[in-house]
Design a protein around this nucleic acid. Structure first.
Length: 311
RNA sequence: GGUAACGUGGCGGAAUGGUUACGCAGAGGAUUGCAAAUCCUUGUAUCCCGGUUCGAUUCCGGGCGUUACCU
């Protein structure tokens, strides 16, 4: 078998200039780009996600962008499976895979692996969720710790999200979620990655976010949400959570003016950016941190030879 | 100019003669198949000057400010 290359990982808070940098890097090292963002996958949401425009991609192949319907749910596992496959394909073409995005969990999955827990049948899952809705989080949690005492120290009694997951896994597989976690295996070696985190100081980021929000509105974000609404997506679908949708809906319903709406979108976005930075500070300790202003000189320093791996 | 009401953290907003709720924003943290989600923790305030009182943000007087109405 011939040589394969490292996998380049580019993370960073929203609006830090990741996508742009990835394109430049791909051009330099002959790479192809894979989306690592849980919301960029949706076909029908383009403006609010700040998806790279085709004419800006400079003929660099982009995968997993806007390929999935907002009507369906997507998961970390789905992403990981597709991404591993794509990495192989790109390697076979002797090109370099570049993963770019803002979803810390996806990066963790590609680096540390994700346990293969049997997928929970829809009916089974919905039954549990309906029950949760009926009895409320408090009672649900009490049932959960009876079913699986291991979660007590792991999940906050108020965390509905994780409670549901732990419950369905234990109930369906008869094995605790936390027992499953112990079986996690990595898909790659530590040395297979070049991990880059783009950082941007808070004040600069706020300015960039505000500019971006204004741009989104002038590009037609309101219309995008109008169309999205016509699809009548069920409220429990993940796509509803794209920042801007619920805010613009309030505007469309006449509950607030456009300035308030913009402000709300900015606030939500910087809260998201804050969580991304917290994740990076504590979960991406060994990543190479690059200031967003230094990306130009950083790009020059990257040598293609250093990306090659002998197999 | 007169009368009245009000003046509480960055903002909104309770309460009280003796530990200043709470919400939002901000900060820190968690994060294994919904993650742009979900959850945890958290700093900072009673307009100013006097008086009454053991003790005033609260009661009284004055000042300043805001708002409403009147002239």
């Amino acid at each position: 078998m011939d040589k394969k290359s490292k996998i380049i990982l580019i993370a960073g808070p929203t609006a830090s200039g990741k996508s742009n940098f990835a394109i430049k890097l791909a051009k330099k090292v002959d790479g192809e780009i894979i989306n690592t963002d849980s919301m960029q996958i949706y076909r029908e949401i383009k403006i609010l996600n700040a998806r790279p425009k085709v004419k800006e991609t400079k003929n660099i192949k982009h995968y997993l962008y806007g390929f999935y319907s907002v009507k369906k749910n997507f998961s970390t596992g789905d992403w990981l499976k597709k991404t591993i496959k794509l990495i192989k394909q790109i390697h076979n073409k002797n090109k370099i895979p570049i993963l770019v995005g803002g979803t810390g969990l996806y990066f963790r999955a590609i680096i540390n692996g994700l346990v293969k827990i049997p997928s929970i049948p829809k009916k089974f899952r919905n039954k549990i969720r309906n029950n949760h809705r009926k009895i409320g989080q408090k009672k649900f949690y009490n049932n959960l710790i009876k079913l699986d005492p291991l979660v007590i120290s792991k999940i906050s009694p108020n965390d509905a999200h994780r409670s549901l997951r732990a419950y369905e896994v234990k109930k369906y597989t008869k094995i605790s979620l936390y027992k499953w976690f112990e079986k996690t295996r990595k898909n790659f070696d530590e040395n297979d990655f070049l991990k880059i985190y783009i950082d941007c100081p808070r004040d600069d980021l706020i300015k960039r976010i505000n500019t971006r929000v204004n741009k989104m509105i002038s590009l037609g974000a309101v219309n995008e949400v109008k169309k999205f609404r016509h699809l009548k997506i069920r409220k429990d679908k993940t796509s509803n959570k794209v920042i801007g949708i619920s805010e613009i809906c309030k505007f469309l319903d006449g509950e607030q003016n456009i300035d308030t709406t913009k402000e709300q979108i900015s606030i939500k976005t910087r809260q998201y950016a804050k969580r991304q930075r917290t994740w990076a500070r504590n979960q991406m300790i060994d990543w190479e941190k690059v200031d967003y202003k230094m990306l130009g000189s950083f790009l020059k320093k990257i040598k293609i030879s250093s990306l090659k791996l002998d197999q």
